[in-house]
Simulated scan of single mutants.
Amino acid sequence: MEFCDECGSMMHSQEGVWVCGSCGFEKARDADSEADMVTTEGQDTDSGPVDMSEVDDAEIGPTTTVNCPNCGHDRARYEMKQIRAADESETRFFTCVECDHKWREDDH
């Protein structure tokens, strides 16, 4: 990956030179420095869905003490995701270990 010396945008390769898509700046490619670059070309980036059918529920994520609004059980698996702006808290997603009911909690 190469970045433009003029505006800082990411450049792309075109006919032996690096070209900035934002400002048009061009610079020659350097085979020695490119040898150290890492690319995703040829890598398997999507190996398909993961089969979780034979994984014990106890092995899927951490659990916490929280009451399920559906069945009242007191344990649930949880995960936290940043779905709003970065300066706001994460949203907690729960799945009851008893009835598989799913719900979420946000800080208000």
Rank of each mutant, 00 (worst) to 15 (best):
D46R: 00
E105H: 06
V50E: 12
E79Q: 09
V55C: 08
Q82V: 01
W18L: 02
Q43R: 13
E54M: 12
E88P: 04
D74Q: 09
D74S: 11
T65V: 10
E34V: 03
C71K: 04
A85C: 12
T95L: 09
D51M: 05
I83Q: 08
G8Q: 03
Q43H: 09
C7D: 04
T40K: 06
D5T: 03
D46V: 03
V55K: 15
I83F: 09
V50T: 11
S9Y: 03
F25H: 15
T65D: 13
M11I: 04
A31C: 02
C68H: 01
G48S: 07
D87N: 13
I83T: 15
A31Q: 09
T65Q: 11
F93W: 04
C4D: 02
E105V: 09
C20K: 04
E79M: 11
S13R: 12
A35Y: 01
P62H: 09
Q14N: 11
F25Y: 12
T39V: 10
M52E: 13
D100S: 13
S13A: 13
P62T: 02
A35M: 10
C99G: 05
K27C: 08
E88M: 13
Q82N: 11
E54N: 14
M52N: 08
C68V: 01
G72V: 02
M10A: 10
F25N: 15
R77L: 06
D87R: 02
S22E: 13
A31M: 09
V17M: 08
E98W: 03
E98S: 15
G42F: 01
G48P: 07
T39R: 07
S13G: 09
S89E: 14
S9A: 15
R77V: 05
C20N: 04
E98T: 07
D30L: 06
D46P: 02
C99P: 06
P62V: 02
